[in-house]
Design a protein around this nucleic acid. Sequence first.
DNA 1: ACGGTGCCTTGACTTAAGTCAAGCGGGTGA
DNA 2: TCACCCGCTTGACTTAAGTCAAGGCACCGT
Lengths: 229, 229
Amino acid sequence: MKKLIDTITAIPLFYNLPADQLNEVTEIALEKYYPKGQTIFMEGDEATGFFVIVEGMVKVFKVSFDGKEQILHILGPAEPFAEVPVFAGLKYPAHAEAIQESYLLYFPRAEFVELIKRQPSLAMNMLAALSLRLRQFAQQVEALSLKEVPGRLAAYLLDLSDEQAHGNRVSINITKKQLAGLLGTIPETISRILTRMKENNLIELKDREVTILDRPALVSLTTGEKMRV
Amino acid sequence: MKKLIDTITAIPLFYNLPADQLNEVTEIALEKYYPKGQTIFMEGDEATGFFVIVEGMVKVFKVSFDGKEQILHILGPAEPFAEVPVFAGLKYPAHAEAIQESYLLYFPRAEFVELIKRQPSLAMNMLAALSLRLRQFAQQVEALSLKEVPGRLAAYLLDLSDEQAHGNRVSINITKKQLAGLLGTIPETISRILTRMKENNLIELKDREVTILDRPALVSLTTGEKMRV
DNA sequence: ACGGTGCCTTGACTTAAGTCAAGCGGGTGA
DNA sequence: TCACCCGCTTGACTTAAGTCAAGGCACCGT
């Protein structure tokens, strides 16, 4: 494993910090391990700090009365989560679970707040991180309310394609159930719509490997066009 | 009109600031006026600052390809909006329009960022404000995805009831169209569901005045119970 | 090797909520 | 004053997506 300070230096939240401040950040960080499937916290739990992912993958989600999950974020390495209760409300607003074996850093609230008060760059980085997340939420609300499932799925595939930058090949690295939870639907619907996209020659599909065949058609789905058939 | 400094002192975003900092805040603020119905900014516009409402009411919203609106927030006096592009992205992520005649304060980005870098209390207040909004978004996503319209409407009425603190009398101070936009549905559906709530003796209804008759039943709607008939 | 479990797909059916259309009443500007 | 628009309601109909059920496949540990 890399030195803790190197890991921390590579986290966007800690970019542009002077060396002494990076050291302070490193000093308050605790390393934590969660096997796949383990709960990290539950909605309503008293929050005493927040997390940054070093390695692994975490889902943050809400659960309905009858057990359906809506995933708010899926997070990977270098991404922070559960910052909200550090600054407002004191309780976790959602559940979090490791969906892969994960190594996290944990930053205790009180110490971190002290740091942030003394270090404007850190405050600005945190403001930027929260702002980015607000933007994502605004998009998620828009998608859930104004787009149909094919549109949301197309948007997801196009995002992945940007992110992965493997041309038109995209690999969905989560289960269909998780994808459904993220897009506000159910696995059956995901399945059916991917099949329809394949039949309409918008994509090629082989397990979790997708090849985008007709990017303009996918884009027009995201903007509200209906899929024929 | 009250002195600007008094107005600013009463805004939560500026609580706990030393007097000299309040003065600095006051110095960079610009007063703006928007008649009812006027656009404040459009999604994608270059953002040069953010706003706080002094008087009036503003909706922040997204629009679908076919013109349907999803309202992200409805904001009233002392509430800030459009902080996101101050810290990330530089463009407004949604549209904003005055839905009542409104007096706003405008804070130019560059000056405000300078202030915040020098003043930890201001940074902490802003972090708290963004965190609060993230919480609200998480709830909105949850509602849109996991609750049916009766549940969302019941939650809205119960929230209003807390907010207004007039016992069981609640007055809906926006149009049904706006309410529909906020809850991710359409006016017809709002109308029908309010009627069903009335028929089931959950509420009394007279124009925009609602009396809550069966609070437990409304609460159980918010947690997923179905409304009979 | 085998039983179980999780992941995924497909089909038949149901349902919540959207669309379209009509109509009413109040307020406003020409 | 009248015509128009807006906000709201109600009815008939459509539709996207959810539910329920069955079956296949691959991987796991016993």
